[in-house]
């Protein structure tokens, strides 16, 4: 009986050898990230009557949890009207590797499914008015006018909502899926 087992043993080893040699995969994961997740939001406010543009950036490269996001303070002048624009990007940076995917154009293109909402606390600290429109004539919010009056400190909260099929005359900041929900500490001087 022992003798007759030898060929079978060879059989098994053959199969296993086939298994181990057939698919050597030496590929390594690349320093890469998901290209569709927003990591960086940049708000640019340019004074309407000339002057240096003000930018504030909210950045969280490693996603929720992990390292705390880097958040700029938004410092504005009182009694000023600004032309605002906001940019969304998916970025990665470590060592000498740097990779940026701008998502702003995609959002504009899919304007009928997106809306950006701006809220100031206390109310009236800064007032944002959306100036761009989607194909259906609904506001998008990538382009704005921001107006300040009195001095004060508070917060500006910005929401990017994805509202495919639900953006309408009655949709609001509670409609759809939240892609971005960030807050800038704001000071009007």
């Amino acid at each position: 009986m022992k003798k007759s087992f030898r060929p079978y043993l060879a059989f098994l080893l053959m199969g296993s050898a086939l298994t181990f040699s057939a698919c050597k995969d030496e590929k390594d994961p690349e320093p890469d990230h998901e290209h569709d997740v927003v990591t960086t939001v940049t708000l640019t406010l340019t004074p309407a009557n000339g002057g240096q543009p003000i930018t504030a950036t909210w950045e969280d490269l490693d996603g929720p949890g992990g390292k705390a996001p880097e958040i700029d303070q938004l410092v504005l002048s009182a009694n000023t009207t600004y032309t605002g624009s906001i940019a969304f990007a998916s970025e990665e940076a470590h060592g000498d590797h740097h990779d940026t995917h701008d998502l702003t154009a995609d959002i504009r293109e899919e304007g009928t499914a997106h809306e950006i909402f701006y809220f100031a606390n206390p109310q009236g600290l800064v007032t944002f008015t959306k100036t761009d429109k989607d194909a259906n004539g609904r506001p998008i919010g990538l382009e704005t006018t921001a107006t300040t009056t009195a001095t004060g400190t508070g917060k500006v909260r910005i929401l990017l909502k994805h509202q495919p099929g639900t953006k309408s005359s009655t949709s609001n900041e509670n409609t759809g899926e939240t892609d971005v929900d960030i807050t800038f500490d704001t000071s009007v001087q």
């Binding site: 927003v38 909210w58 929720p64 949890g65 996001p69 939240t178 971005v180 929900d181």
Partner: peptide
């Protein structure tokens, strides 16, 4: 909660 660019998530 985990805080990220999209707001708060459960962890």
């Amino acid at each position: 909660y985990a805080l990220g660019i999209g707001g708060a998530y459960l962890q």
